[in-house]
Design a binder for these strands. Structure first.
Lengths: 394, 394
DNA sequence: AAACTTTGTTGATCGATTGTATAAATGGGA
DNA sequence: TCCCATTTATACAATCGATCAACAAAGTTT
């Protein structure tokens, strides 16, 4: 069975084009939409009236005349419904509430120490529950819940493996659907980050964007031709296990010389521990501590960041040469060390990539203020809402 | 301006679905097509009649009854037109003539030694001209010319750089369009190979397929979600310049330790030359000679193939971990050494890739009998014919 | 031979875009 | 102030393509 064409499909396509246009360029008049999209005036009129009926668009009043009748300006009704977005981390749960435009209305972070299912799942449900309770009443209510998870998923939303949480075969989709009776979408953390950056971050104009999540390990969210690339078994993006040293250290994945052995938060802390025992006692080492030490001038720590940065740069160079993307965003924990790792990364990238590829390329660090993973997760929920129930074709 | 929907689009979609169904599963009756596609009987009838009118489909006679009126069986008219496919190599021009189904009707190889434009372009034009002259007369005649080129192209069919031919900024599209007044499509060699394997080779069922062209250098054709991936500047697939040894040999690309320094035909021959001067005089070394020597038991050559195979395996492992493809096809010159490099490649891949990724993965060598590059090139011409003038939406 | 099945066509209907005419609102100029 | 061109938006008929239903054609089964 194929997706065959009929008038309903045509209408869905055009309605989605009209709504997208309003979302991106409002305020707009009907006639401007007609010109921008190439659709006939009458078509636009009737579609707009349906969208107003559905409370997704509203009239804001008259605009300025350009020599004739004054246009009626239209706005997207961002507040017709809200979406929940969750970044499920290794020691925290970040829940955000966004409107249909992806603007953050509310947010709350909860921390945990034990990662066992019995502890985390109830906390997760409670956190979402609390956020739903705080959401204002709207036409469509909570239209969906999107979650970003640090692990490998199948296409039905089961977590096959989340090594840093110690989870295996957790049917999170079922658990949350049962708990809330609301559509749930689950996405890998790095993929969600890529989506977030594409929709709300630095990558709005880019069709090819790669989100490099440098945390305990390294994961990558690959967005090609505007869509997440998943591979044959939903398991692409395991770039942490690139071989960058043919005869390097042994990795638990079975290979040798894997990238994340040299360039992750784990690598950083492990190496720091070797010389910091004497330098500063047995304090708990984490990345924020190390950044603080570098800021206050510790040469050894600065040198360590430099080294880690170079290794990150090697992997990123491989990514660049392979994917020739428009944008690379470095996110997750190590992004806070931007100040200390940016230069070595850039230096290596300039050495190891083609000039004509670099010309189309930008590299940036995810802003610590906005959580692109939670934003991306919320966006998947919104998108699913539109494609399943209302407009949108994809 | 977007691609908006109207009835013409609907018809194009459905007509293309009907034709594709016939191409893939003929002989078929109208009613079977209706069931397979989900389209209404009447719709199928009218579309089929148009296709018959256009000479793209014909009735072959009655099929067997299944308890009622006997069906009229339909066939795709593969011979309604022919396409030219060209593999422009570093020392040869292979021209093939295919029907609309991609079956090779005729083929001819011409060899050349000087790669200067003045020599090669006239030869190319003459070779194509000769093939066109030999083609039988059909309804649509020669519907297009497709060319696979070992170099970097822009989106208008200009060769920006073909290092092994010594060409730069050659507007091949214009040259050939002027010469033949027929639609011309130009594609990178490795991309054409990927398309050929997808349509006619081992990859028919696969959406994610990577063609690794191991010749003088290493190029890759990346087919994701059923489409060639080109990257931001049409320049992805430069995987020959992966870094696999962080402190390895210097490469002319400016980096160090690039894959193709260790795993290409160049690497093979260079290393062979070092010890073969004394072993067999100053014969001209090429890959066929080396394969022959291995076949007759030269331990050193066998060991060399083993080593090159292992390095190929390392790069392929990286590709696998990154793309998680269904299929990898190893093509171009080194494919003839399958017997000697297959095992080391496989051994390394098994060591360096995840088991769950391998489960969905096949690795094969391009068959030397069929040239997937020329086939893929011819297919791009056929596809362009259908999408521009007749049915097909993409 | 009658009844049922399968295949394929034909004409009516539906639904969506488009084209044309028209109405409404406005600015510019005589 | 009045008239007209212009811009905006709607209304209604025309058109095109898919679907639906009825029917004809050609079998098979009982």
């Amino acid at each position: 069975m194929h997706i065959t064409g009929d008038q309903h499909l045509v209408k869905k396509i055009n309605k989605s084009i009209v709504l997208e246009t309003i979302k991106k360029k409002s305020p707009l008049s009907r006639s401007q939409i007609s010109e921008l999209t190439g659709l006939h005036k009458g078509t636009v009129s009737s579609l707009i009236n349906e969208l107003i009926e559905e409370d997704l668009v509203f009239e804001i009043g008259h605009g300025l005349s350009s020599g004739g009748r004054r246009p009626v300006m239209l706005l997207f009704n961002q507040e017709a419904g809200y979406a929940i977005g969750v970044n499920l981390g290794v020691n925290f749960i970040l829940v955000i509430l966004t409107n249909l435009q992806g603007e953050v209305i509310d947010e709350k972070t909860t921390y945990f120490e034990q990662t066992s299912l019995d502890v985390v799942i109830p906390m997760l449900i409670e956190a979402i529950q609390a956020m739903i309770a705080r959401a204002p009443k709207t036409t469509y209510g909570i239209i969906g819940i999107g979650i970003g998870v640090p692990g490998v998923l199948d296409d039905k939303g089961t977590i096959l493996l989340a090594p840093n949480l110690g989870w295996e075969n957790v049917d999170l989709h079922r658990i949350l659907t049962d708990a809330f009776q609301i559509p749930v979408t689950i996405e890998n953390e790095a993929n969600a980050g890529a989506i977030g950056e594409k929709e709300f971050g630095f990558g709005k104009e880019d069709a090819n964007l790669i989100f490099v999540s440098v945390g305990i390990g390294i994961g990558t969210g690959i967005l090609l031709n505007g869509e997440i690339y998943r591979g044959a078994s939903g398991f692409s993006g395991e770039m942490g296990h690139f071989v960058i040293e043919t005869n390097g250290k042994k990795c638990k994945c079975g290979s040798k010389g894997c990238w994340e052995l040299y360039a992750s938060e784990n690598a950083l802390i492990e190496q720091a521990r070797q010389f910091l025992v004497d330098e500063s006692g047995d304090q708990t080492l984490d990345i924020n501590t190390l950044v603080a030490m570098a800021d206050s001038g510790s040469a050894r720590v600065i040198h360590l960041f430099n080294q880690i940065g170079e290794y990150i740069g090697i992997g990123i160079s491989n990514i660049i040469n392979m994917f020739n993307p428009e944008l690379i965003v470095i996110g997750n924990r190590l992004a806070v060390a931007e100040k200390w790792i940016k230069n070595p990364i850039m230096r290596i990238v300039e050495q190891s990539t083609f000039p004509f590829i670099r010309r189309q390329l930008r590299i940036s660090f995810a802003s610590p203020a906005t959580d692109s993973i939670a934003l991306g997760a919320a966006y998947t929920a919104t998108k699913s809402f539109f494609s399943n129930t209302k407009v949108w074709v994809d």
